Computed example of a mutant assay.
Amino acid sequence: KIFCSKWIFNLSSIYSQLLNMSVLLIKLNKRFFHIEGKIHSHKRIGPHNLDIIQVIIGSLLGDGHLEKRSKGIGTRLILEQTNQNVEYLMWLYKFFYNRGYCSSLKPKIFKRIRKNNVIYYGIKFNTYTFSSLNWLHESFYTQENIKHLPIYLLKYYLNPMALAIWYMDDGSKLGSGFKLATNCFKLSELEKLCNLLHNKFKLNCNLHKDKLSWTIYIKKSSAKQFANLIEPYMVDSMKYKLGIYSQYYKQGLK
Score class of each variant (00 low, 15 high):
Leu154Thr: 02
Ile119Phe: 11
Lys211Arg: 15
Lys211Trp: 15
Leu158Arg: 03
Glu231Tyr: 02
Ser59Asn: 06
Met161Lys: 11
Tyr249Gly: 03
Leu66Gln: 00
Cys184Ile: 13
Ile216Gln: 02
Pro47Ile: 01
Leu25Val: 08
Thr215Trp: 05
Gly243Val: 06
Tyr128Trp: 14
Gln143Asp: 13
His34Tyr: 10
Ile45Ser: 02
Leu105Ala: 14
Phe9Met: 13
Lys179Glu: 08
Val235Ala: 07
Asn145Ala: 15
Asn29Thr: 12
Ile146Gly: 00
Leu61Lys: 01
Asp236Met: 04
Lys155Asn: 15
Lys68Trp: 13
Asn126Met: 12
Lys43Asn: 09
Arg99Trp: 02
Val118Thr: 10
Lys94Asn: 14
Ile151Val: 13
Lys38Ile: 08
Arg31Val: 13
Leu180Val: 03
Glu36Lys: 11
Gly37Arg: 06
Leu197Val: 07
Gln17Cys: 11
Ile14Gln: 12
Trp135Val: 12
Ile39Trp: 04
Phe33Val: 15
Lys209Cys: 08
Ile56Asp: 00
Gln247Lys: 14
Ala164Gln: 01
Leu180His: 02
Gly243Gln: 05
Glu231Pro: 01
Thr182Ala: 14
Gly100Cys: 05
Thr142Ile: 14
Leu197Asp: 00
Lys94Phe: 10
Arg114Lys: 13
Gln81Asn: 15
Arg31Ala: 13
Asn228Glu: 09
Leu11Cys: 11
Ser222Cys: 06
Asn117Val: 09
Lys211His: 13
Leu212Cys: 11
Pro160Ile: 09
Tyr248Met: 08
Leu207Cys: 10
Asn183Ile: 07
Glu36Gly: 02
Gly64Ile: 09
Leu149Met: 08
Leu187His: 12
Thr142Pro: 06
Cys194Ala: 12
Asn195Cys: 11
Lys106Arg: 14
Gly252Thr: 09
Leu154Ala: 07
Glu80Val: 01
Asp63Trp: 01
Ile244Ser: 14
Tyr157Ala: 05
Arg114Met: 15
Lys209Asp: 03
Leu229Thr: 06
Pro232Gly: 05
Tyr157Pro: 03
Leu163Arg: 04
Pro107Ile: 04
Gln247Phe: 07
Tyr233Trp: 11
Asn117Tyr: 15
Lys106Ala: 12
Ser70Arg: 15
Ser132Glu: 12
Ser16Pro: 03
Leu66His: 00
Gly243Glu: 05
Thr75Phe: 05
Leu207Ile: 14
Trp214Asn: 03
Lys108Gln: 10
Pro160Gly: 08
Ser246Gln: 07
Lys239Asp: 05
Glu138Phe: 09
Tyr121Thr: 13
Thr75Lys: 04
Tyr217Thr: 07
Asn98Ser: 07
Glu191His: 11
Lys106Leu: 15
Ser41Asn: 09
Lys155Ala: 10
Tyr157Thr: 06
Asn85Gly: 02
Tyr120His: 15
Lys43Met: 10
Arg44Tyr: 06
Ile151Lys: 06
Tyr157Gly: 03
Asn98Arg: 01
Ala164Ile: 03
His137Ser: 06
Tyr121Ser: 14
Asp236Val: 08
Val235Asn: 07
Ser59Asp: 04
Phe96Gly: 02
Arg112Ser: 15
Ile53Glu: 02
Lys1Trp: 01
Asn29Phe: 14
Lys155Thr: 12
Lys38Pro: 00
Lys6Ser: 08
Gly72Trp: 02
Phe110Glu: 12
Glu231Lys: 04
Leu187Arg: 11
His198Gln: 10
Cys194Phe: 01
Asn116Ser: 07
Lys6Trp: 04
